[in-house]
Design a protein around this nucleic acid. Structure first.
Lengths: 209, 209
DNA sequence: TATATATCGTTAAAAAAATAACAATAATTC
DNA sequence: GAATTATTGTTATTTTTTTAACGATATATA
């Protein structure tokens, strides 16, 4: 798995999709699958699938195909979903609350430990057992509770500031939903989500031909 | 703009990002920008930017650069954001409510007309003036109110069913947040969002080196 | 057990995307 | 107003990504 650092962004972005489909198949009791069958289901080519998996060593067997649950486990590991993470959410507005309420993240090891907000009306409340604390206490909380992942759901104007504080206190991963690309140092990972981007793409497609 | 149908997916997916940066600059009063300056801000190459814009005709001026507001307007048009759309949301859970509360969409012409849910406790309530109606009335509502865009925020198990109903009643664009790829006929546009995909990518990056 | 079939991993070819180069032209300077 | 500079649009080159081809190997069949 030393190849990792040379795996292209395109491949990496397909991994979660593989994982989704494989998890589903595993759940439905499918035991084996060939690259050809999988390609049909996922709308990719069989060639690409084999090539993608081979970036990480290749988990199949000639003449047989892939063991679904084995392959699924491998991809889980590659994605780092076999570990547990401590997570906080900055911004307890609608989106922050929606994320806190979604149980799927916890199933994959992302445990939301606390939420933070400036609004005194929200501070003190709980969402699914997760407390909303004052945003001023976020820095110390990160340090004291070994938080690795920070989710940014604050308004655009506060996003960079909140991110900076997270990074300063040792967070190594920023999942940002504010509609602005936040800047981070090289050793920190970031995903700027930009929900509306996909809406605009949809708008483009709708008006295309 | 006849070229449209031959513009690559990669370019199309960058358009919303250009639009974001240009809108910001326009707001801050920036009048002109060169591909070189823009490339620095956005983390792209100047070459790529010029090439991207030229897919749609090229809006610059040699020796000068681009007029920010003019370029911004052009991209708005290309994305179809100069029009108005009637939108509904299926599923008034946390995510549905979060989307209904976000005013940014309306600013770009996506007017949320109604929400739909199965939960009788939610039916009858309003979010920012948008009524939550019974999901069974969705089909007729779509027809009677000329709805063009359907946002799917229902659980995974119901996503395809709800999508089918939307398509059957004439919706031409599906923005799907359920964690499954919904299938649609060829003449309908779809964006399957998959929030957790970016979290998993983040997880990969965090564990990389 | 030998033969046929399926299917992978891998190498080769093709296609697509990104980058670089440059001629054309507008703006600016002297 | 001529010369210089800036910067585009466009063509050429390079790189990356995708697709196709195929030998190797395991499974299934006769």
């Amino acid at each position: 798995m030393q190849k990792s650092s040379r795996v292209s962004e395109a491949v990496i972005r397909r991994l979660p999709k593989y994982y989704r489909y494989l998890k589903d198949m595993q759940k439905s009791g499918v035991e084996r699958i060939s690259s050809k069958e999988l390609s049909k289901k996922m709308g990719l080519t069989a060639s690409q699938i084999r090539q993608d998996f081979n970036c990480f060593g290749g988990f199949g067997q000639q003449g047989y195909g892939y063991h679904v649950s084995e392959l699924c486990d491998e991809i889980r590991k590659i994605l780092g979903l076999d570990k547990e993470y401590n997570v906080i959410i900055a911004g307890a507005g609608n989106l922050g609350q929606a994320l806190a309420n979604y149980v799927g993240f916890e199933k994959e090891g992302f445990n939301i430990r606390a939420m933070f907000d400036v609004n005194p009306r929200l501070v003190g409340l709980s969402i699914r057992g997760v407390q909303i604390l004052d945003i001023d206490s976020m820095g110390d909380y990160i340090v004291n509770n070994e938080i690795q992942v920070g989710i940014v759901c604050v308004p655009k104007a506060k996003a960079q500031e909140v991110t900076d504080e997270m990074v300063k206190r040792g967070i190594k991963s920023i999942w940002n939903f504010a509609p602005v690309d936040v800047e981070i140092p090289e050793n920190v990972a970031v995903e700027n989500v930009h929900l509306s981007d996909t809406l605009y793409t949809l708008s483009y497609k709708m008006n295309e031909d």
